[in-house]
Computed example of a mutant assay.
Amino acid sequence: MDKFKALYLEDDPSMQSLVMKILPENIEVSQAHNMSGALDLLNRNTFHIILVDLRLEGESGFEFLESLKDREFPFIPSIIIITASENEADEVRSHKLNVFEFIRKPLRPEAFKSQMEKYINRFRTGHNHVVKRVGPFVIDESKMEVKLTFDHTEEPILLTLKEYKLLLKLVNNPKKTYTREELLKEVWNISSDVQSRTIDMHISSLRKKLGAVGDTISSIRGVGYSFNLDKIS
């Protein structure tokens, strides 16, 4: 990750120009003027951070944020709101959508630049060489990659974001049994048990991808799932 990449959704050219001048030079920024343009860029690129204006012409930034909830990102991008809204309800709603920062206009250039530099440095130091080895599992948290070791070789396993987050949650707490409701809340950020079938489908897919070690994910009848290396024969 030599280049830190940002997506900036803003329909005011003067505001876009200002932010582009303020942002640190080591950020590679892709700009979008509307929601469809931003989604198109997301389909073709990996971003580490997304900057969003809430009030777009004919659209709402919240529509865009809602559309991100079920996307499968190679990295989980942090979201920063830059808005003229003074409405406290907008800020509360943003945080419920896992927004990292809520910044009000007008921007204070030096403070904003310093804030972004601090975030980039924290991201790089916090996501550098974070490799977890658990049994045959090799999990690189900086790249969100999972590999399995077989006969001293490492084989990459291609997982969706939700499968990765499920596996990491289980691996980080071996032998702890998670209910479907807990996994829905912690991985999907929803509390309803109406969609608990979603968990079963993702676990089934994850087990298939893990092949010979898929049994490390145990099903506890009527309760939920746990991770147990004792299942490896």
Score class of each variant (00 low, 15 high):
residue 4 F to I: 01
residue 5 K to Y: 06
residue 10 E to K: 06
residue 12 D to L: 08
residue 12 D to A: 06
residue 18 L to N: 03
residue 18 L to G: 02
residue 20 M to Y: 06
residue 23 L to Q: 05
residue 24 P to N: 04
residue 25 E to L: 14
residue 25 E to R: 14
residue 26 N to S: 12
residue 30 S to C: 09
residue 31 Q to L: 15
residue 34 N to L: 00
residue 39 L to E: 10
residue 39 L to R: 09
residue 40 D to A: 15
residue 50 I to W: 00
residue 51 L to G: 00
residue 51 L to E: 00
residue 52 V to I: 13
residue 58 G to W: 00
residue 58 G to N: 05
residue 60 S to Q: 12
residue 62 F to L: 02
residue 63 E to G: 01
residue 65 L to I: 03
residue 68 L to M: 03
residue 70 D to S: 14
residue 79 I to M: 04
residue 81 I to C: 00
residue 82 I to G: 03
residue 84 A to T: 13
residue 84 A to D: 08
residue 84 A to W: 05
residue 86 E to T: 13
residue 87 N to G: 04
residue 89 A to V: 10
residue 95 H to S: 12
residue 96 K to E: 11
residue 98 N to K: 08
residue 104 R to E: 11
residue 106 P to K: 11
residue 112 F to S: 00
residue 113 K to F: 03
residue 113 K to I: 01
residue 114 S to R: 08
residue 116 M to V: 06
residue 118 K to V: 05
residue 118 K to G: 07
residue 120 I to Q: 02
residue 121 N to A: 08
residue 122 R to G: 11
residue 122 R to M: 11
residue 123 F to P: 01
residue 124 R to G: 03
residue 128 N to A: 09
residue 130 V to L: 09
residue 134 V to A: 13
residue 134 V to W: 06
residue 141 E to G: 05
residue 147 K to Y: 14
residue 150 F to D: 14
residue 152 H to D: 15
residue 156 P to G: 12
residue 159 L to P: 08
residue 161 L to S: 11
residue 161 L to W: 09
residue 166 L to S: 07
residue 168 L to W: 14
residue 169 K to L: 15
residue 170 L to K: 06
residue 174 P to G: 09
residue 176 K to P: 07
residue 178 Y to G: 13
residue 178 Y to I: 14
residue 179 T to C: 12
residue 180 R to I: 07
residue 181 E to A: 15
residue 185 K to R: 15
residue 185 K to P: 09
residue 186 E to G: 01
residue 186 E to Q: 07
residue 187 V to Q: 05
residue 190 I to Y: 02
residue 192 S to F: 07
residue 195 Q to D: 15
residue 205 S to D: 10
residue 205 S to F: 03
residue 206 L to M: 04
residue 207 R to F: 10
residue 207 R to H: 10
residue 214 G to R: 02
residue 217 I to Q: 01
residue 218 S to E: 14
residue 218 S to G: 14
residue 219 S to Q: 08
residue 219 S to T: 15
residue 222 G to E: 03
residue 226 S to R: 12
residue 227 F to W: 07
residue 232 I to Y: 07
residue 232 I to M: 10
residue 232 I to H: 13
